[in-house]
């Protein structure tokens, strides 16, 4: 371990699954398309008015999923801290939202 000049970052697995560029590019493309689609739905009358809101919420959910798993590597090992902080964030957001809406 001579010349060991960087502090170890804990809880990181030594080797990671190699991942292709394609996966990222495809996710990125899907996210761009979904964003554009959301704007398109709001700006035009392609779908009935009642459908617009549920549809863009579904698009948003897909994007969150892609963001977390493709770009933030939540599917890999050693993501305990991320999960902890994301869960804490969701909990606080839910409490705040429920507080505002119901109270």
């Amino acid at each position: 371990m001579a010349g060991h000049n960087q502090q170890s970052t804990t809880n990181q697995p030594a080797s990671r699954k190699p991942e292709g560029v394609m996966k990222h590019l495809i996710s990125f493309a899907i996210m761009i398309v979904l964003t554009a689609l959301a704007f398109y739905l709001v700006a035009t009358d392609v779908v009935p008015e009642g459908w617009v809101l549920p549809l863009i919420i579904i698009f948003a959910a897909i994007q969150v999923f892609l963001q977390l798993f493709t770009f933030m590597h939540l599917d890999q090992k050693g993501s305990g801290y991320y999960t902890l902080f994301i869960m804490a964030g969701i909990l606080i957001a839910v409490v705040s939202a429920v507080g505002i809406i119901l109270m």
């Binding site: 606080i92 507080g99 119901l102 109270m103």
Partner: peptide, 21 residues
Amino acid sequence: GFMVWVHHMFTVGLGPVSNSL
């Protein structure tokens, strides 16, 4: 700290349930 923000807004009129909680 995240569960108590409404105590700054007791007199806004959010109702007794919210205020007591």
